[in-house]
Design a binder for these strands. Structure first.
Ligand SMILES: [Mn+2]
Ligand SMILES: [Mn+2]
Ligand SMILES: [Mn+2]
Ligand SMILES: [Mn+2]
Lengths: 145, 145
DNA sequence: CACGAATTATAGCCTAAGCTATATCTTGAC
DNA sequence: GTCAAGATATAGCTTAGGCTATAATTCGTG
């Protein structure tokens, strides 16, 4: 019989797992940004209109419409044809989490000496790859110095 | 006549620009990872074979083949049918830059208290969004403490 | 040196994300 | 109340990045 001694995963496999994770993260990154921004618009204007979403995301209107369709599919938003877009409870919860993480990432970058403008720019991409574990480390670092 | 006084960009426009940048970065992130890893394979084995590239990236072999085609199109790699893949000078330079940035990002994360394993995992995605300005800040922080 | 195994290429499919052009619906001004 | 302007939806295209199945090539072994 073949032995089934648990093997330590090969380095190649471990590296592949990291790339896999990075690709997974990337596939939800856009959703996170849309949800956070729709939350902003709801807070500012009471509702999020597709035209405003498109403007703030820097995409064409049909692109925003399609993204909203995906948000609805994933249970993060609701809307009816030709009406505004609203976050579901799940969407709202996610928006809050994403917003807090965004702030923490910017604060961490600034704390280690990154200029404000740059921090805000880079954080928009970095944030999505910051795991809960890393986020907690950032929070510890920011509070105890 | 309409005035052409230079306007401060609207907040929506600024935010859109950040998202635009994040999307741009994301479109080169995969190329960077492939190039860095092909560099590793060349150093370890003298050449990078498509099968090894696929294994380390955690993708199917045709996916790696297609990625290599894109690298060739962008002038980062060369190869002939059924032969190994090699970096061009541009590819080698990029690989070196990407490798150094990766190390710095991991070091910074560890320095602020992120566990090693987590740092390595998160860095794989984070690195691509770290601008030159942020990278220099990381280096300053790491050297002077 | 032939042939089977391993490797690479190709064909054909899918989804996400972007775009432009155009159709459809809503709404405010008259 | 109409209707033109504005907002949204839809159609149809592109590219990147995945996949499986299969064809073509290379190479080691006998
Ligand atoms: Mn973001
Ligand atoms: Mn954000
Ligand atoms: Mn990476
Ligand atoms: Mn890397």
């Amino acid at each position: 019989m073949t032995e089934d001694i648990p093997q330590a995963p090969s380095p190649a496999r471990e590296q592949a797992d990291r790339f896999l994770r990075a690709r997974e993260v990337q596939s939800v990154a856009l959703l996170e940004d849309y949800v956070e921004m729709i939350g902003d618009l709801m807070a500012e204007m009471g509702e999020a209109r597709v035209a405003d979403i498109a403007e703030r995301m820097g995409v064409a209107q049909p692109t925003a419409t399609k993204a909203v369709a995906r948000l609805k599919r994933e249970g993060l938003a609701i809307s009816r044809p030709y009406r505004g877009v609203f976050l579901t409870e799940a969407g709202g919860t996610l928006a809050e989490k994403v917003r807090a993480r965004h702030r923490t990432v910017v604060a961490l970058l600034v704390a280690v000496g990154v200029p404000e403008e740059t921090a805000e720019l880079d954080a928009e991409g970095i944030e999505h790859h910051v795991s809960d574990s890393t986020l907690r480390a950032f929070e510890r670092y920011l509070s105890q110095r």
